[in-house]
């Protein structure tokens, strides 16, 4: 009896510790972000174009440019990763022979374990020059580059979760479609993908979560120009990159310091919403 109580208590402490750490991080973000708004209005912060915190006379703390940059890079990544990921998943579940599947699956998983700095490196030495040649610009470090790299990083998530979703569609649905004269394509597009849609949606959301919070890759490959981006060929600087670049050098307890925490908080709200939505989607049924 007593032993059981002790074990129970240990698990309780364990669980609580995790929750406390998480809440602590959240509290730290909020506590350090709030003082920023003594000097900046929320409106200027959220809707200002110019981020120039070290300006001598009037520093500006508008994050709109980096929010748009983050969204551009993320959406670009999803535009690449979602069709490719679902296509690959469909190929692996429906078309590939068992042998191909056995080889391809571990490869996809290995893709997930490539360190982001290596992917960023590939962005600089491989994708960058290639994009520069393609667009005729002097540098290929821009939003497309980031999108491509983030797509590569999101793909394993999208592929393996979509594959699980497609694989768990009951065989009876496939049989019903085949018996009605449906070919493989029609069965996939009109029966299997709709039947697996919540799992596939969740896969995409989680892939998005992976892309939006990624730092090192976009820091290396996107060019880091703090200007408002007008095209995918513009160099961009995302929220994550801004925090990573500046937080190391900013003097403590200045408005700039607090503003970086506020940026972190905004990012946290983004990822939190994405995870929340994907959670709701997964548990809808």
């Amino acid at each position: 009896m007593k032993k059981e109580k002790i074990i129970e208590g240990l698990f309780f402490i364990n669980g609580m510790a995790v929750i406390i750490v998480l809440l602590g991080i959240f509290a730290l973000l909020i506590i350090n972000a709030i003082p920023a708004f003594k000097d900046i209005t929320l409106k200027d912060f959220l809707f200002g174009y110019v981020w120039n915190p070290e300006a001598y006379t009037t520093p500006s703390f508008g994050i709109l440019s980096m929010v748009v940059s983050t969204l551009m890079v993320t959406i670009g990544a999803l535009l690449i990763a979602i069709p490719l990921g679902i296509g690959t998943a469909a190929y692996l579940t429906d078309v590939a022979s068992p042998k191909v599947r056995e080889i391809a699956k571990p490869i996809v998983e290995i893709l997930a374990s490539i360190p982001s700095v290596v992917i960023g490196f590939l962005g600089i030495v491989l994708v960058g020059p290639w994009l520069a040649k393609l667009t005729g610009q002097s540098s290929g470090l821009n939003a497309i580059n980031g999108s491509i790299l983030l797509a590569v990083m999101a793909l394993p998530t999208v592929i393996s979760l979509s594959e699980d979703a497609l694989g768990s569609v009951p065989k009876a649905y496939t049989e019903a479609s085949w018996a009605l004269g449906g070919n493989k394509w029609q069965t996939l597009l009109m029966v299997k993908i709709p039947a697996a849609h919540s799992g596939i949606l969740a896969a995409c959301m989680l892939g998005m979560g992976r892309a939006i919070g990624e730092t090192m890759t976009v820091l290396m490959a996107c060019g880091n120009a703090p200007a408002f981006p007008h095209a995918f060929t513009d160099p961009v600087r995302t929220m994550t990159a801004t925090v990573a670049i500046e937080l190391g050098e900013v003097p403590y307890n200045t408005t700039h310091f607090y503003a970086l925490f506020a940026v972190g908080l905004v990012l946290f709200v983004f990822t939190f919403c994405i995870n929340l939505i994907s959670d709701l989607v997964i548990h809808k049924k």
Binding site: P170, A172, Y173, E175, A176, S177, W178, A179, L180, G181, V191, P194, A195
Partner: peptide
């Protein structure tokens, strides 16, 4: 299969 209709032993309507 287009010229053969089939009703399976276990009902298998699509989730539509």
């Amino acid at each position: 299969r287009k010229k053969i209709g089939m009703v399976f032993q276990k009902p298998n309507p699509f989730p539509k």
